[in-house]
């Protein structure tokens, strides 16, 4: 099995040392990237009146706990966090599972209409999410699912990108001989999937799962339409905070912080692996 690290080697030999200019430019880029997040913390930890002071506050204040609590209670942030973990978790799991299955079939199994179907999968990436919302909303209403989590989970259980991603990965990373050998031993394709494909696919599955989780966590358009403020996901709760009637800007920022914190923590802990994963996905093919 080829690891992503090995895959990246070819260019690595060329790496030149960067000078101080490179360092400074990158430092500026890092500051610009991180400052809004830092300022979220500053704003979330101060009071409404201090945010609007000129010059604006640049160091955190003492109200963080109070503001977090306010944000938490005002827009059902507790429900939102639990809901979003549930939604993003089940969407990520299902997407990875179905994408790996389909990716395996597209990459390594022979069947009639395979390339046509694969083209179809890629074609569906073109369908904008906005397109189906009107009937989808009416459908959910008819099913009695509006404002319920399955209305958010079900439509996103699969992803064309995921299928394609796994197909590309398995086409390269899964040696055909391995499957042949298992076939000769009389193994069924499902068995092969379980014992041969899954172990090979694991790194790509992790990347896909992570990307899907982040995307689902941050999804706004459809959840905002089908869910209501009393049973929201994190993003719906945040947009309620942002659009709605709330007492305090610092509370809004505290809400933004609450909604982002879980993902940021993942980034802090797994940052390097995530960077590797995204680059791996980009290099594939």
């Amino acid at each position: 099995m080829t690891t992503p690290a090995l895959r990246l080697r070819p260019g690595a030999g060329r790496q030149l040392h960067g000078g101080p200019v490179t360092f400074v430019v990158l430092a500026v880029a890092a500051i610009v990237s991180l400052f809004p997040l830092y300022w979220t913390v500053v704003a979330a930890s101060t009071s409404n009146n201090r945010i609007t002071r000129t010059p604006p506050p640049l160091v955190p204040g003492a109200n963080l706990a109070h503001n977090l609590k306010e944000a938490y209670t005002q827009v059902h942030m507790g429900t939102a966090l639990v809901n979003t973990f549930f939604v993003a978790g089940s969407v990520a799991l299902a997407t990875v599972l179905f994408a790996t299955l389909a990716g395996f079939a597209f990459a390594k199994l022979r069947f009639k209409g395979r390339s046509l179907l694969l083209m179809l999968v890629i074609g569906t990436m073109m369908v904008p999410p906005q397109l189906g919302v009107v009937p989808l909303f009416m459908l959910m209403g008819d099913l009695g699912w509006s404002n319920q989590l399955q209305a958010v989970v079900l439509p996103t259980l699969v992803s064309a990108f995921g299928v394609f991603f796994m197909r590309q990965y398995l086409a390269e990373a899964l040696p055909t001989e391995l499957i042949e050998a298992a076939r000769v031993d009389g193994a069924h394709s499902l068995r092969i999937f379980w014992h041969v494909v899954l172990p090979v696919a694991r790194p790509a599955m992790a990347v896909l799962g992570m990307l899907t989780f982040v995307q689902s966590w941050n999804d706004l358009f459809w959840p905002m339409i089908v869910l209501n403020g009393d049973n929201p996901t994190v993003q719906v709760a945040l947009s309620e905070l942002g659009q709605g009637y709330v007492p305090d800007r610092s509370v809004i920022m505290a809400g933004a912080l609450l909604g982002t914190l879980p993902l940021l923590l993942v980034f802090v802990v797994l940052g390097r692996q995530i960077v590797g994963g995204i680059m791996q996905g980009a290099v594939k093919g």
Binding site: G11, Q15, L16, H17, G18, T22, F23, L26, A27, A29, A30, S33, L34, P36, L37, W39, T40, A43, V214, W217, N218, L220, V234, Q235, L238, S239, L241, G242, I252, M253, A256, L257, G259, T260, L263, L264, V266, F267, G271, R272, I274, V275, I278
Partner: peptide, 28 residues
């Protein structure tokens, strides 16, 4: 792409905004 001290940090740093949702980012 240059060899650089702290390049791993820079890579994570520039990617971090991507973990921020549209809603949270826009509010800030």
């Amino acid at each position: 792409n240059y060899k650089l001290r702290g390049s791993a940090f820079f890579r994570v740093a520039v990617l971090t905004p991507h973990a921020t949702s549209v809603a949270a980012g826009t509010l800030v």
